[in-house]
Amino acid sequence: MTASGIGWYGVALAIIGGALRVSTPYLFVSLGEVLTEKSGRVNLGLEGILLMGAMTGFAVGSLSGSPWLGVLAAGGAGALLGLLHAGICNLPRVNDIAVGIALFLFGMGLAFYLGKPFIAPRAAMLPALQLGAWSNEPAVRAALEISPLFLIGIALAIALRWGLANTRWGLVLRMAGESADAARALGYSVNAIRTLATMCGGFLGGIGGAFLSLYYPGNWNEGLSSGQGLMAIALVIFARWNPLRCLWASLLFGGASALGPALQTVGVTSGYYLYSAAPYVLTLALLVYSSSTRHTLAGAPSELSISR
């Protein structure tokens, strides 16, 4: 590996590069989850949506030859699964967390079922932006090779942060999440708002999946996702329901999951699996630290079933 040539400096570089590369799916699923949770519902099924998105994106990308069409189709598949989640949650007395688990199992099964014929071929990949072209060091260039989807994600995080705080749409969405009664009193349909929010969240989750299959690691197989979709819910708590903080949290989680492979390049191989658990330990520690029996988590929408 190139990193071993430049020693520990290379490890830091590999972590930064890993963070830039690995964080994109985290970013998209967490933004999708923020949108859903701000409307007052939890979608624990983003893992299933992510996998369906990855499969659809890869299939459409390899059949049509256009990776961007694949990204769009992945978003569409995610939105459809989001609609399924919302449709069931709109029924009375249905637990949204349980529906999320069901959607996770269903989406995973469906993706593996429909994606079986696509395991062998390679699709047209998304292009990469060479931000490190100024450097002669190959490690630097490898680390700074980023996906355009990452930039889109950053723009989206900023746009969502602004939109939730400053637009009429954002206000209505937050109202549905803070007080369903208030939204109803103003004549809005809470179920319609939440359905729309879950579908948009599913769209973003599907794009996160397309990143996995069309950019990095850039293929389709059944071990593609390492639980990025399930992490979304933890990331959102970590980011305290703020889209901009989702960006930092995603970078942090991306960096943490790049820790193991980066240390491996300099010969530290013993605790590989333990390092891979770093994001989960981090989230749990944060939850234990910031939770309290007396008040809900700071920033949590009050209609949320996990904050009641």
């Binding site: 399924l84 029924l91 249905v94 959607l103 199992l105 269903f106 469906l110 079922y113």
Partner: peptide
């Protein structure tokens, strides 16, 4: 059929069971 076929069925059952609680 792919080995995920039974997973699809299990997922469908789960979704229907939750919907039935309504």
């Amino acid at each position: 059929m792919p080995d995920a076929t039974t997973q699809v069925l299990e997922g469908l059952i789960f979704i229907c069971v939750l919907a039935s609680s309504a």
